[in-house]
Design a binder for these strands. Sequence first.
DNA 1: AATATTAATCGTATATTTGCGATATAAGAT
DNA 2: ATCTTATATCGCAAATATACGATTAATATT
Lengths: 111, 111
Amino acid sequence: MAIHKKEEFTQKEQDLAAFAKAISHPARIAILNVLATKNECICGEIVEILPLAQSTVSQHLKELKNAGLIDGETDGPRSCYCINWKAFEKFFVEFNGLFNKLKIRNEKACC
Amino acid sequence: MAIHKKEEFTQKEQDLAAFAKAISHPARIAILNVLATKNECICGEIVEILPLAQSTVSQHLKELKNAGLIDGETDGPRSCYCINWKAFEKFFVEFNGLFNKLKIRNEKACC
DNA sequence: AATATTAATCGTATATTTGCGATATAAGAT
DNA sequence: ATCTTATATCGCAAATATACGATTAATATT
């Protein structure tokens, strides 16, 4: 694409899109799932569970972290990750703000 | 990527990821917003609102339709679109199913 | 029938994402 | 000090996504 036009949309639209993008890959959903059930987890455990190479998992973790959806801190030679609940709360609220008005008039058919 | 490994994840993970991917671009968020406020809308109106070419908007609409998030029917030479609420309901439920368990133990810090 | 309007599709350029092996880094163990 | 373990980063290849202009298709209008 010649020029990306993402900047021409509102900040809220961009934020929501960025959040959605962060969870737009099954591997990242799966990672969040693991973190959700185990509450916290080191990279190696996730690598064992997912059908992906270590470097790939590390990359997905980085993306989730950049998006603010997970926190991570190093623990000796290991890296321990967990879900950033506040970020999820924030995005759920934004989602509802955007789409709840829709629910009201719901059920209406198209055109 | 040599081989895409998306199929190796569960159907639920893939579905959620596909939904997220559909709304992972600000233009598509903006389109949903327009449809949400106007309840229904023809392609041309959306083109006027968004800072994108007609062909690009048409492509985004197609993606949203393929993902099942909107319905569209032709009305003469026009195409009228609206949000598929049932699809949104479905995905909100799935989202909560995946992430509500997290909320319970919430507040817990990382590692 | 000819023309105008509206939207979808095609072709193409460029950017981004996904994935992996190899390498680097950093801390712990011997 | 050396070796092991765990993770991050680099470099590359292939796949996808984004955007647009040009064209096509399909319906209205004249």
